[in-house]
């Protein structure tokens, strides 16, 4: 089985996000970029499938720091790594890159395309259904377990309230991974160093093919706070206040 797994580098949302001067993008100058968490799970699922039944895993990374994350992917077990060129200092729109991913899936004779169910920059839509529809392959998003039995996949999808639904489908397919069957593994420094010699292929982007798309006019920060009260940052005074608040509401004790 040939697996193509997509790794998107996105700004660290835990850090501070500031708006750029044009008001339509975020200031990328000082941002840390990291692998989209869900894509990390997709990579893990790809490697687990390879370990379980044999597969060739091609990792495709896009965005700032792609080379670094591709070395990590190689260290974790990816057989081939490719950096997809993207516009510098721009957000990674899954709608924009879907055609390039679909083209690579064809070029690499992929049986399975895996990516994270979502990224924080996919405001114009999610990668798995775009790529699936472009290729006219079945797609399922929000998976937390994928088992391959030859060309037949058993895929478990998370629904609300802890309900899980299992589907069966044949490859070729596109899956949007929510959670890998096992938590993503760590790689040792020595493995990383070894993998740093893995040659990184390059791919040029294709045009998205969409004639009409929505456009961002402005970005803004949400109005902070609402009606909530800020208790500040001193743990002792916060604890004192919370004891009072909880006691007043009859919530302090069993």
């Amino acid at each position: 089985m040939n697996i193509l797994v997509i790794l998107r580098m996105i700004p660290d949302s835990a850090g501070e996000l500031q708006l750029a001067e044009d008001g339509r993008s975020i200031d990328r100058e000082w941002l840390d970029f990291q692998l989209n968490d869900f894509d990390d799970h997709a990579l893990e699922e790809a490697i687990l499938l390879k370990e379980a039944g044999g597969a060739k895993v091609t990792a495709v990374a896009v965005g700032e720091g792609a080379n670094r994350v591709l070395q990590m992917a190689a260290a974790r077990g990816a057989d081939e790594v490719v950096a997809l060129q993207s516009e510098e200092d721009a957000m990674i729109s899954s709608r924009e890159i879907a055609a390039s991913i679909a083209a690579m899936a064809r070029a690499k004779s992929a049986d399975l395309v895996l990516c994270g169910v979502q990224s924080s920059e996919d405001v114009f839509g999610q990668l798995a259904p775009y790529v699936g529809a472009l290729l006219d392959w079945p797609h399922v998003s929000g998976t937390n377990r994928i088992v391959a039995n030859g060309a037949v996949l058993r895929v478990t999808q998370e629904r609300g309230a802890g309900v899980a639904v299992t589907y069966e489908l044949a490859t070729p397919a596109v899956l949007g991974v929510q959670t890998a069957s096992k938590a993503p593994r760590y790689v040792s420094g020595s493995k990383l160093r070894e993998a740093s010699k893995t040659p990184i292929g390059r791919a040029m982007p294709e045009s998205s093919g969409f004639e009409r798309s929505a456009e961002i006019i402005t970005l803004r920060l949400p109005v902070q706070g609402g009606s909530g009260e800020n208790l500040g940052g001193n743990a002792e005074t916060v604890a004192d206040r919370l004891v009072t608040i909880l006691a007043a509401k009859g919530l302090a004790r069993n």
């Binding site: 114009f124 259904p129 775009y130 529809a133 004639e211």
Partner: peptide, 19 residues
């Protein structure tokens, strides 16, 4: 869970914008 797969699929097949 359903909408996640439906929205972009429909946008692709129709060629329409999606937010």
């Amino acid at each position: 869970a359903n909408g996640l797969d439906v929205a972009a699929d429909i946008a692709t097949r129709t060629g329409w914008p999606l937010v």
